[in-house]
Simulated scan of single mutants.
Amino acid sequence: MKDEVKEPVPLDTNSLAVMRTVLANERTFLAWCRTALGLLGFGFVLEKAGLYLRHLIPDIDPHLSKDLGVLSLFALLSGLLVLIGAAWRFFSIEKQIGSNLGRMTPVPEVLVLLAVALVLIVSVFSGNMLFN
């Protein structure tokens, strides 16, 4: 078989604009996912810091410990809400664009991030049960 040289397909400006918009939407979605993951990690660190403070310093002010727990729960829930909002925004803009380019959807990435969030939340609550 002879190697065939494929000639580039000429694209009009409209299809290029749609491609740019789709790629910008994808970049924005990934940026929001990074933000959500950062919030989830921050919530995890705060909760673990509160648990270690209670465990290592028994006479610590209970209000500080409780405040750290509330702040960590707020960060964890905020991360989950940002992730859900990012996915909703991504799909709504994708639908508005009407781009059925045969691309893969970000559903696997969203599921992985939700699984990570679930693991973080379970570890926080299991840490609470271990140290209390």
Rank of each mutant, 00 (worst) to 15 (best):
T28D: 13
L73N: 15
G50W: 07
V119Y: 12
R103T: 03
V112M: 08
N25C: 14
G50S: 14
R54D: 03
V45M: 13
L113P: 02
L120A: 15
V5K: 13
L101Y: 06
L113N: 07
G38T: 00
E4Y: 15
D3C: 12
F74V: 01
D67C: 03
G102K: 00
P108S: 02
R89T: 09
R20D: 04
G127A: 03
L71E: 09
L101D: 02
S78D: 08
V110D: 04
P108T: 01
G79K: 00
V124P: 01
L40P: 05
I57F: 11
V82Q: 06
I60D: 03
V18D: 07
F90Q: 09
S15V: 12
G50Y: 11
M129A: 07
D67Y: 04
N132Y: 13
W32E: 09
N132A: 12
L37I: 06
V45L: 13
L118W: 06
K66F: 04
M1H: 06
F44M: 12
F74D: 01
I93R: 13
G69Q: 12
W32C: 10
P62E: 02
L73D: 15
G85L: 08
L23H: 02
P62W: 01
E47C: 12
C33H: 00
K2H: 11
L23F: 09
M19S: 01
C33Y: 01
V45I: 14
C33Q: 05
M19Q: 05
V124Q: 03
A117H: 06
V45R: 10
I60Y: 07
K48T: 11
V18K: 11
V22Y: 00
A17Q: 05
S99Q: 04
S99C: 09
V107D: 05
L37N: 07
M19A: 08
E94G: 12
S126M: 15
E109F: 09
S15H: 05
D67F: 05
L23E: 08
R27F: 11
A24R: 04
I93Q: 14
I121H: 13
P58G: 11
V116N: 11
K48Q: 10
M1I: 02
T105L: 13
L83M: 07
K48P: 00
L68Y: 05
T13C: 02
T21R: 11
D59Q: 08
H55S: 10
V107N: 08
F29K: 03
I60Q: 08
L37A: 07
R20C: 04
Q96L: 12
F131N: 08
G43E: 06
V122S: 04
A36C: 07
K6G: 12
